[in-house]
Every structure is written in C-alpha cells, then in structure tokens.
Amino acid sequence: MKIWLSTSCKQVAVEPPLVNFQGTNNNTLNLEPFFRRKDKVVFVMGATGTGKSRLAIDLATRFPAEIINSDKIQVYKGLKVLTNKVTEKECRGVPHHLLGIADPNSNFTVADFRRHASSAINSIIVGKRRLPILAGGSNSFIESLVEEEPEFRYRYDCCFLWVDVSLPILNSFVSERVDRMLENGLVNEVRNLFDPNGLGNDYGRGIRRAIGVPELDAFLRAEMDSTTDDKARSRILKAAILKIKENTIKLACRQQQKIHRLQNKWRGWNNFHRIDATEVFLQLDNGEDYSSDNAWETLVVEPSFMIIDQFLSKNSFKLTKKVFNAVF
C-alpha cells in the first residue's frame, strides 16, 4: 500500500531480506517477489469524552483517510444526542463506517464488529487506497479485532493513539457534557424510545444498554402516573440525571483501566502512543468546546499528525503465507 502524504517526509526504501539456501551451487535466492508491504491501520482510543471522534476527523482531513466507528452503542440507529454521534457538519466530509447501521433492538456482537470492521478496512484500503482510522470507546471491540480476527496482525501494521485526560478533570467535563445533552433534548429522545407497556424496555439489549436509557425509566413511568405530582417527578428526574453522570464517570474509569491493560499487553508494539490532553481540558472556559481551542491543535492534533506521518512513511514487509509455509 503506497500513500504519498507529506512533502516534508522522505519515503524510506526498504529492501526485502535475502534468504540464503545452501545448495549444490551455493546460490542466494532473492525472495523479493514474494514479499508484500503490510497495509496500515490507525486506532484512536480513549475514555468517553476525551475527543476521540474529533481527533479522528482532524487526522482524516490531513491524510487520505476514512473513519470506522468502534463504539458499541454508536453502531445502533437512533439516540444521536444521548450517544453523542458526530453530526454531518462535524464529519467535515470525512466518510464514516459502522455508524448508526444496526437495528436498535438487535444485539450487535463482538463477532459482528470483527466481520463488519474487517470488510470496511479492506474496502477502504483496496477499493479506495485510503487509510482506515478506527475510533471509539469500546476497547473490547478493538482487542477482539486485533487479536481474534484471523491474520489481522499478519496483514496490517497498526498504530494506536491513546487520547488521555486525567480522570478528575475528565469527570468534571463529562458531567457538564451530560448537562449539554439535556439541553439538546436527551430526555425527549429517550422518551420516544420508551415503551409505556414495558414490553420493549429490555435494558440489557441493543441501544437500550446506553447510559441514560435505564436511568430515566423511573422518571418516564412517573410522568405517566397521574398520582405522581410535579414535585415528585422533578425529584425523580434530578436523581436520574445524577445517576447518568455517575455511571458515565464509572464508564470512563473502566475504559481507562482497559486501555492501561492493553498498553501493557501490547508493550512490544512500538506504535502505541499516549497523547496527554489534560492541559487542553484545564484551559476550558465556561464549557467552551475543546475542539475550537488552540491548545487542542497544539497539544493533541499536531503530535498525533507527526506520529501518523512517521508511521505511514515506514515500510513493514510480510512474506506471503504460501511461500512462508513452503520455505519455513
């Protein structure tokens, strides 16, 4: 896969190794025709609210790339506000895959993700000669793709970008983000999904697993109960909002712990990079969108760009499986 991306980055010519076979004539066999360059794949990881989607889009506007969603809730149709799906404007013309494709009442499994993501990666590389960037908070999806999809590591050279924010700082931002979601219609969005008869409210299935849906159940039931007065409903709603914030913060903590585990697990890979965005969040004023702040560009986007630029300039080779098995 050849991607010419930057005039400031020299292409490095890497010669495939020669394998010596001691025969009667002591010839050296050049296996160059049997070596192929590994295709490149980038992963943008991080806890909820750290700006993974924004960074993926920022990078995709600088490289010929397309984005594959790796969030297990954003894969479902609906609940755009609650699941914080990127808008058409925020996409800035960058194609997105696996975003809002699954029936909200279905169960989109890890195996489903591996199958769909592998197909998307192949179509982006082979069909469009572009760079696949996987972005999302479901680290179990990423781990499964990298480790369980047959021949994934054999076929692809991977680069991992971890957008990290100190948890105390992130927790405050996440709480404020829930407030903004409420202003943008979160409750009404969940209300439209709610089944008053309770028959379709399976909170362990599909999009109803999203944080914010089960927490609002008691309020939506109180809303329909004529014996519950407005003061009681208001109290129930406040408790639900507090629970949404608490559970979102817990999710961020679990996600960060999982990334730490993967970092240690994949320590042998040189292409695992932590991008510290804490200072960006510290500079926020009055809930200003971090993506518009100069600090985001300087501390997050530019270092990430340099990492990916260097990653793409390096060639990694693989020996075709048929020849590898025959020779070794």
Rank of each mutant, 00 (worst) to 15 (best):
Q255K: 10
R235W: 06
S292H: 14
F141A: 02
F152H: 07
G127Q: 13
E15I: 08
G287V: 04
H97G: 06
I207W: 11
A102R: 14
L82Y: 08
F194N: 05
T228I: 06
A65H: 08
R208Y: 09
K38G: 04
V110C: 12
E189T: 05
V19K: 03
K258W: 03
R115H: 15
Y76Q: 01
I207K: 09
R221M: 01
Y290V: 13
G287R: 08
F194K: 09
R254F: 11
T109Y: 09
V42A: 10
V14R: 06
T278E: 01
N294G: 15
V174I: 06
S140V: 12
T7Q: 15
E183Y: 10
P132L: 03
E297C: 07
H96V: 11
T50E: 02
A102Y: 03
V14K: 04
F328T: 12
K238A: 06
R129A: 07
S172N: 13
T278F: 03
L161W: 06
N315K: 09
E223M: 13
T48A: 02
K40T: 05
V81P: 00
F305I: 14
R254P: 07
F305N: 11
C91S: 04
M45G: 00
I275K: 07
R36D: 12
S140D: 14
S70Y: 14
Y154S: 01
H260I: 11
E183A: 05
N27V: 06
F324N: 14
R37D: 10
L79R: 08
N315T: 13
Y76T: 01
L262F: 07
D230Y: 10
T227R: 11
A232Q: 11
